[in-house]
Nucleic acid binder design. Structure first.
Lengths: 237, 237
DNA sequence: CCGATGCTTCGGCCGTCACCGTAACATTTC
DNA sequence: GAAATGTTACGGTGACGGCCGAAGCATCGG
């Protein structure tokens, strides 16, 4: 079977620690330069360059040259979903191993972070919980949908569900997807709705990025909105 | 980040051609012996044994000893979904490569096959199309749901939607999920409903396995049922 | 109890690949 | 134009890991 070789190549590319680190860093959906990626992976720039060339040739990342910089980003949401699913399997296996050493830097990540194009961590899970509790969203293991009440809520927050519909998915209620959180081990909101909610949160200043990581900080304004609109309590821990 | 090492380990395990072949063979959801897996991967039994030990230690496969045989199966649906998502990325990259040589043995696979626990290939896509066209199912990129009419249809086929509900997902309409087909590049039906439909199809003799592969053959009875219930025409090519 | 079968462990060979030093190329800035 | 910065190309080194042959354990059948 010819597809087997391609499969192995893709998985193998993701299987190198250095490349995995780079892909991980790209999971926030932003475009980074080769030097930045080399730094996060802890390798020399020329080594990173080679890795990135291979990742680009295989269609995992997309490069975009701009002046003397070359910005790299994940090639597609499909790649991000692949990363998620591998993380999922990895964290399933984790409990059986020795204690997962949670460094202090992980704390911010666990509190709130971006997961490619949507929000994850305790914030992401709390938002999903709040939406479910409020009857705005229904989530199952494999799928999710936005209710009529949810369409109204999102509309009031400036997210037009009808505008999110693509050619393929005209049923606006289906534009959401559960994404199992690797730190919380519970679902959070992904899909078009999750992405729109994340984008909106940045636009409105409800959250802001913490420099150099995928973690995000919740602003006072954000805490108020999340509490009022979604019923999310202040995250104390 | 500690999770990075686990991630790389899992991806790396899937990235070896021999192991990828074995995992691929396990994608039909059945349990196979170490010898069978060694055969499909084209390696010596002792080599396969080492691979399988590592896969089991990492939580990708589950072993089940039965007499002098040791049956291996995928550890969880999460592993199957990971495999699917990697295949997805791999097939996205494929068009850019040289022509995907489709051996004659692939023909049966393209016509109809199992994808872990549900049906894929032209049959799987045609079933999904028929269900959508008939208003029994709604499918978007990220999610799917069964309509009221769909619940009735599945009920008449002996699939009780209420019985499929788990603790987590009480909303029976959400028990379905689109799974992008690597050969057809269009979605087919996965999730609890897809799995139940596949199981039912074997029970009722609508399809039967083709020895030694994931491909399945559609029986005359099956062709009639698929045509009458789902509007699937006879698959000519 | 003995041979056959399925599976695993051990030891050694060999290819692959990640890595960096050095150097060249491209682009921006002064 | 020259220096600085970001990126790519090349060559050599070292290590990790896949592979098989041979031998050691389990289990089943006679």
């Amino acid at each position: 079977m010819a597809s087997n070789a391609l499969f192995a190549e893709v998985a193998s590319l993701a299987g190198d620690p250095a490349r995995a680190g780079m892909l991980h860093a790209l999971m926030d959906g932003r475009a980074l330069t080769a030097s930045e990626l080399a730094h996060v992976a802890g390798i020399a720039p020329q080594t990173a360059s080679g890795h990135l060339a291979r990742l680009a040739a295989a269609g995992l990342v997309r490069v975009e040259k701009q002046g003397r910089h070359r910005y790299h980003r994940l090639a597609s949401p499909a790649v991000a979903r692949m990363m998620e699913s591998i993380m999922q399997v990895a964290s399933d296996a984790a409990p059986m191993r020795r204690t997962v050493r949670t460094g202090p830097r992980d704390a911010a990540l666990r509190a709130a972070r971006t997961c490619y194009d949507h929000l994850a961590g305790r914030l992401g899970v709390a938002l999903a919980d709040g939406l479910v509790a409020g009857g705005h969203v229904e989530l199952a293991d494999d799928a999710g949908l936005v209710t009529g009440a949810g369409i109204g809520l999102f509309g009031r927050l400036g997210i037009d569900m009808a505008a999110l519909a693509t050619d393929r998915s005209r049923r606006t209620r289906l534009l959401c997807r559960p994404c199992l959180d690797w730190s919380e081990r519970r679902p959070h909101l992904a899909g078009a709705v999750g992405a729109a909610l994340c984008t909106r949160s940045f636009e409105e200043g409800w959250i802001r990025r913490i420099e150099g990581t995928r973690a995000v900080a919740i602003t006072p304004k954000g805490q108020q909105v999340f509490r009022d609109a979604f019923g999310v309590r202040h995250d104390r821990q």
